[in-house]
Design a protein around this nucleic acid. Sequence first.
DNA 1: CTCTAATTGAAAATCTTTTTCAATAAGGAC
DNA 2: GTCCTTATTGAAAAAGATTTTCAATTAGAG
Lengths: 143, 143
Amino acid sequence: MDYKAILTQNGYRLSQPRKQVIELLQTSEVALSPQQIHQALQQKNCELGLVSVYRTLELLTELGLVSVVYDPQRNPGYMLSTVGHLHHIVCQECHKAIEFSASNDIDQLVQRVEQETSFQVLDHFLQLFGLCPDCHQKQIAGE
Amino acid sequence: MDYKAILTQNGYRLSQPRKQVIELLQTSEVALSPQQIHQALQQKNCELGLVSVYRTLELLTELGLVSVVYDPQRNPGYMLSTVGHLHHIVCQECHKAIEFSASNDIDQLVQRVEQETSFQVLDHFLQLFGLCPDCHQKQIAGE
DNA sequence: CTCTAATTGAAAATCTTTTTCAATAAGGAC
DNA sequence: GTCCTTATTGAAAAAGATTTTCAATTAGAG
Ligand SMILES: [Mn+2]
Ligand SMILES: [Mn+2]
Ligand SMILES: [Zn+2]
Ligand SMILES: [Zn+2]
């Protein structure tokens, strides 16, 4: 995903903090909190303020480059997102998250709920929780 | 819903703060934040600490009497819940929220995602957003 | 290379939530 | 109803998270 192009096309500069946050997120299979991102970058000797992490995440979310993914205790974290509207399934053990699409199934549900409730449905939030293949295996092996 | 019975059956007392929070939530069509609950009760001359609001909400959530419902900006709020596993649809204008059930539709989706991702799905979070009948009408009238 | 405006970072301000602990009150026993 | 025990409360402090401010820095256009 060409984040550089997306930033410049929208009139934003590719600053060091932005580059560093994005490159860190590219290596992470789990959603990270602002603090986790800040700490991880400190340890890699990237000097940047926590404030910039917040600002960068806000911008990237706005641009659709980053999605908010909740951990099993419902704490929000941030992950790079591929383009388009997707949902996440999160491992309750290791917090690894991957995307899935659900348009068709959701459309059907939305139509039914609109009839039942008389609400007009415009948006939705869906996330699944469970065990990733690795953690599932470990659980079977352990018991 | 007999919250009094549920509290005592689980060994909890029916204290004034608990009674006041529950009775306030019974009158609200929108999910309220701890601060909103505190302020609303202050104005009704119920003297109780914000700390007790937090503690009460935590307990009631644990007992399943209260659900967390997110507003359109994803700020969490609290609402009384009817028994059983239900989801909420929230009005983007007035934040009014009502419950709906989705078991069948979700089961189907879960099965597909399990096949596609090899994750084992154990839990899910789903919320819809849109316009309640009133706000939908107003929008049509206004334009 | 120069210049300028966007961006950053340190500090302070602002919120939100949790912890502590002495005072209070709910509810069972009598 | 009164007494007693202990769960519960509230004020204050601590801890944590996020936002605001503003002077210093730097990305990128010219
Ligand atoms: Mn969707
Ligand atoms: Mn469900
Ligand atoms: Zn896992
Ligand atoms: Zn509405």
